[in-house]
Every structure is written in C-alpha cells, then in structure tokens.
C-alpha cells in the first residue's frame, strides 16, 4: 500500500514538473534585455531596435564573455570559462531562464519593456 502511494507521489511530481517545464520554456514576448554583472546592470538593449553588434565583457578574474546581438536575438558566443554552459545555452528565449555564466557572475536576461 505504501509502495503504491510512493509511486503515485512520484507520478504526480513528474507530471507537475512537466507542466511547469513547458510553462518555463515558453518564449518571452519582451524586447528589452539587460546584461548584469555582480548584481549591477551594465547594459540595457531593445532587441528589436538594436543593430547587430558584439560586446566584450571582462570579468573581475581576468576572463571575458563575448555577447552577440544578431537579428533581434542575443547570445553569448564565446567565453574563457571551463564549463562553457553559457555558450551552450544558445539564444535567450525564456523569461525564467536567463543565460548565466556562473564563473564570471554574468547574467543576460529579459527586463520589463519601457512604454
């Protein structure tokens, strides 16, 4: 009997997580992005109005991240950190999943649009 309860609990957690994941992965409708390092906002862009460009952001430990804006999309194209997770995360899409570079404490995320 307890086994069945455990199984039901596992199934319930799984289903709820699937629904939440779909919700979290939904693409954002916002256009404003900000680049944050160590809690301070370095840049704010309107993706639809910004021309294609590259920004090199040095970090406190001597490393860097290369951020690329192209065709209204933003991504980190290069970094000299060991794990490269920020590069592999690709283009910023979701409100809830910012592109994060943990070693360089850098975040690229959507912000509220200015009206």
């Amino acid at each position: 009997m307890t086994n069945r309860k455990i199984m039901l609990a596992v199934a319930a957690i799984f289903l709820v997580s699937v629904c939440l994941s779909v919700f979290i992965l939904m693409p954002s409708e916002k256009q404003t992005v900000e680049i944050v390092q160590n809690g301070t906002v370095l840049y704010t862009f309107d993706l639809k109005k910004t021309k294609d460009r590259e920004i090199r952001i040095p970090s406190a430990d001597g490393g860097y991240n290369l951020i690329v804006i192209e065709n209204g999309e933003i991504c980190i194209s290069e970094a000299d950190c060991p794990d490269q997770t920020c590069v592999k995360m690709g283009v910023l899409k979701s409100d809830y999943l910012p592109i994060v570079c943990l070693p360089h404490r850098l975040t690229v995320r959507f912000a509220e649009d200015e009206s």
């Binding site: 709820v16 699937v18 994941s21 999943l97």
Partner: peptide, 12 residues
C-alpha cells in the same frame, strides 16, 4: 528555482 522542474523531469 526556475530550473527545478526541468531538472526534475530530466532527472527522474
């Protein structure tokens, strides 16, 4: 915490 649901699905 936004990562938790994704981790739970792939993790399980």
């Amino acid at each position: 915490i936004a990562y938790l649901p994704l981790l739970l699905v792939t993790g399980s």
